[in-house]
């Protein structure tokens, strides 16, 4: 895949050490994953205090899942992370693997794919590169990423002709094409059927291990969180209630008893039984 001077500069610093050893051989030009630090984050909408002091550190390259009841502030937290909203008080800072302050190349995937219906699949992915990338280079990069999400042959189709899962894969490809250092996922699999979800989970795990970005997933599905993430936090009434590491190696098996035990622990924390 051609990668060069046209990439967003923040996404690429050559030879940056990564914090974990990926099992899949590293690509020549890998973007540095962004480490995130939140301190004392509060967010208010009018009188409604959605976030009431969140302190959280996410090391570069970690896959973090945020779970909680609806209205617990998890989506708000995610929107703050990618700069779609600004916090009422508190601070968010980003560092690269070497500890230097950076403005991260952050991308977000929503529950609905939000593809432009008047652009072909490949043109939609090119949107992810921003303006100023030569057309033929953008096309090649888009097709390379589409190949990664197994939609290479759909490059010329209209989004209206794809299934829900395929559309969400295009949205993922659009987020990945600029090689983000931080990928925010706002219930990206929420609207998909059970089988499509499983294959999307496998895809997410694969691209995350391959590309090494920091991932923050918001979900209400505890099974999904436990299956994908290194670490799960439970958000309750605007505060972190539980912070749980998921040490199991990838790829994880559905129905693993250790994972099921962790899942039970999370569920009782969410439902307030402990």
């Amino acid at each position: 895949m051609p990668i060069g001077p046209y990439q967003r500069p923040l996404a690429f610093v050559d030879g940056e050490p990564l914090e974990y050893e990926p099992p899949i051989p590293a690509r020549a030009n890998r973007p540095p994953a962004a480490a995130v630090k939140l301190s004392g984050i509060q967010k208010q909408f009018g009188d409604n205090r959605v976030l009431r002091g969140v302190d959280l550190e996410v090391p570069a390259g970690q896959f973090l899942a945020i779970v909680g009841k609806s209205g617990c502030g998890k989506s708000t937290l995610l929107r703050l992370l990618v700069g779609l909203d600004s916090q009422t008080s508190g601070e968010i800072s980003f560092k690269n693997g070497a500890g230097a302050e950076i403005v991260p190349n952050a991308r977000i995937v929503f529950q609905e794919p939000r593809l432009l219906p008047w652009f072909t699949v490949s043109e939609n992915v090119e949107v992810g590169l921003g303006d100023g990338v030569p057309k033929n280079l953008a096309r090649r990069q888009a097709e390379a990423v589409l190949a990664e999400v197994q939609l290479r042959e759909k490059a010329g189709e209209w989004p209206a002709r794809l299934s829900g899962g395929q559309r969400q894969r295009v949205a993922l490809a659009r987020a990945l094409v600029s090689r983000p250092g931080l990928l925010a996922l706002d219930e990206p699999l929420g609207a998909l059927d059970a089988l499509t979800r499983i294959s999307m989970q496998q895809l997410l795990t694969r691209v995350w291990r391959e590309l090494g970005f920091t991932a923050v997933l918001v979900t209400h599905d505890v099974t999904e969180a436990v299956h994908l993430a290194d670490r799960v936090i439970v958000l309750d009434e605007g505060r972190i209630k539980l912070d749980l590491a998921i040490p199991q190696a990838h790829p994880r098996r559905h129905g693993d008893p250790d994972l099921a035990a962790l899942e039970g622990k999370l569920l009782s924390a969410i439902l307030g039984e402990s």
């Binding site: 991308r107 939000r114 432009l116 652009f119 949107v127 921003g130 303006d131």
Partner: peptide
């Protein structure tokens, strides 16, 4: 939602108009 998406991907002004608002 599409306009918000466009802004996230760095579109503004003419580019947002040409790619999102006008076709829509």
């Amino acid at each position: 939602d599409l306009i918000e998406m466009g802004r996230i991907y760095g579109m503004s002004g003419w580019s947002l108009f040409r790619k999102v608002i006008f076709p829509g």
